[in-house]
Amino acid sequence: MTDYEMTSCLSAVADQLLKEVQKTYQEKTQIPDDLLIALRFVFGSCALQALDLIDKRSVTCVSSFSGRRAYQVMGGSGLLYTCYTSCHYCPCPAFTYTVLRRNDSLLCKHILAAYLSQAMGLSQQETVSDQQMSSILSGRAAATDT
């Protein structure tokens, strides 16, 4: 299997797993052990760290009048990381090192927390102006700073 096929395959498994989490959480308002084990298997140590961030209500889905959305995740250090809704990106050092540089992981705990909180309906919501959204997306400002 080539790197491309491996990455596509892993991404497809991850997408399917997140859909399963969403479906099950909507029905039972909890994640059963078998899905927790699957999350741990696919995402490694990121899975528990992401669930911890969700428990702390660290994920905010920011939207503006244009309809543009982004996730903001408060990291353990108190820094706010902006993640995009349509592709894997996070400005945290772990994403740069383990995902971009070493290619060891699919994503970091902040991106996973954003996806899981969206699937579980546990993200906070915030509306900002279009100009504020532009600053958030470009990394010039966090939502609460603007």
């Binding site: 503006s64 532009s134 600053s135 997306l137 470009s138 010039r140």
Partner: peptide, 16 residues
């Protein structure tokens, strides 16, 4: 790069 990021990030604004 900062200016480019800001310019690209602003492209959604006319949608409103």
């Amino acid at each position: 790069l900062e200016d480019l990021l800001q310019d690209v990030a602003s492209l959604h604004e006319p949608v409103s």
